[in-house]
């Protein structure tokens, strides 16, 4: 049905584009509406795929690089330093620890399901995983790597040289390092959350209260922004539509304004994914919400303009707890040891 529409639309487009763009648009709108009425309205939320198809050797190599501190300037940090995979894919800190200990960074987002995001970083400064990976590696405040030295360090390890030359025709290069890392990051998917099972038709996967939470999540309007496979990660929103949220710290983080320079982007951040949200506390770009209850309250009050009853909030929190998926066959959990 959809394919047919696309073909139809494209032929229509080809036929009509010469005449009048306006007319063409009008027809498009007409078509889209007619099709949308006929089509079953898709669910705003979708389950994660159970399996992702990736190049296994690259993933393995990427995994090795991901855990290798040599990727950072000081040899102190690996990707896994801030994104420990045994603890929700993030460090559990309010803000990420900067390399110099002075710079102010934002809360570390989880790397799980990162490939289903469409914008990266809190301000969406990059839109591809590769660009994001390289950016973080080169960020002086994070890993402070410099390509020539990094490549030099990696070349000194015969295993890397062998592995790269085995997997990539051009061997150990900057692009291939990024590619291997990105491949590994794409493999960080946490399927089989109870909510996903529920979406796939297992109505018993959620209990009554959780299902009530899901209904509230829809009814209250959370789903307006937290939608898609990742329940977020695909649009931007001003933090604080209805009044300024509490706990704002100085200096004021301008968010996406830093990227676009548009006034209306001041205080605008990426809507984060709610996948595994129960194991990725604290919350928000500045980690101001220590727990889900606080985060849900803040969101309801300042984003939806409503105060939630405790019951409502608890239901929603319960629902959010069903979004925790499995990585490497195990449900994600907070690793208390790495999270002081």
């Amino acid at each position: 049905m959809k394919t047919g529409f696309v073909n139809h639309a494209s032929t229509q487009a080809n036929m009509t584009q010469k005449r009048n763009p306006r007319l063409f648009l009008a027809e498009c709108i007409g078509l889209a509406l007619s099709v949308a009425v006929q089509a079953q309205t898709p669910e705003p939320l979708a389950s994660l795929p159970l399996k992702v198809d990736l190049n296994a050797p690259r993933v393995v190599l990427g995994q090795r690089l991901f855990h290798d501190p040599q990727l950072s300037d000081q040899g102190q940090r690996s990707c896994a330093s801030c994104h420990p995979l045994d603890s929700g894919g993030m460090d559990g800190k309010v803000r990420a620890e900067s390399a110099d200990g002075v710079s102010l960074l934002r809360n570390t987002p989880s790397l799980f399901n990162v490939s289903f995001n469409y914008f990266f970083n809190w301000d969406g400064v990059v839109t591809t995983l590769e660009a994001h990976t390289e950016k973080v590696m080169l960020n002086p405040n994070i890993m402070n790597a410099k390509w020539p030295e990094l490549i030099e360090r990696l070349r000194a390890v015969p295993d890397y040289v062998d592995a790269f030359s085995r997997i990539y025709p051009d061997g150990l290069t900057k692009a291939n390092v990024v590619d291997a890392l990105s491949n590994f990051e794409r493999s960080l998917v946490t399927p089989n959350a109870r909510f996903d099972r529920f979406l796939r038709g297992d109505t018993a996967a959620l209990d009554a209260e959780e299902q009530q939470g899901y209904r509230l999540f829809n009814a209250l309007g959370c789903v307006a922004c937290h939608q898609g496979v990742n329940l977020g990660g695909n649009l931007f929103q001003k933090f604080g539509i209805f009044g300024t949220p509490k706990g704002e710290q100085d200096p004021v983080d301008e968010g996406r304004y830093n990227v676009t320079g548009n006034d209306r982007d001041r205080g605008v951040f990426r809507v984060p994914s709610l996948r595994n949200v129960a194991v990725t506390a604290p919350y928000f770009h500045d980690g101001r919400a220590a727990n889900l209850e606080a985060a849900v309250d803040t969101m309801a009050e300042h984003q939806l303009g409503k105060r939630l009853a405790t019951k409502q909030r608890d239901a929603i929190v319960k629902f959010l707890n069903t979004l925790t998926g499995e990585y490497a066959g195990r449900a994600l959990a907070v690793n208390k040891k790495t999270n002081p």
């Binding site: 639309a9 498009c28 889209a32 509406l33 949308a36 979708a46 469409y118 898609g228 695909n234």
Partner: peptide
């Protein structure tokens, strides 16, 4: 083609008929 798809999705979104923004984005 993508432009047409995008326009369609935008119109659907505007009409409240687009469930999520994944496809549009």
């Amino acid at each position: 083609l993508r432009d047409a798809e995008l326009m369609r999705d935008i119109l659907l979104a505007r009409a409240g008929l687009l469930a999520n923004y994944d496809a549009l984005t």
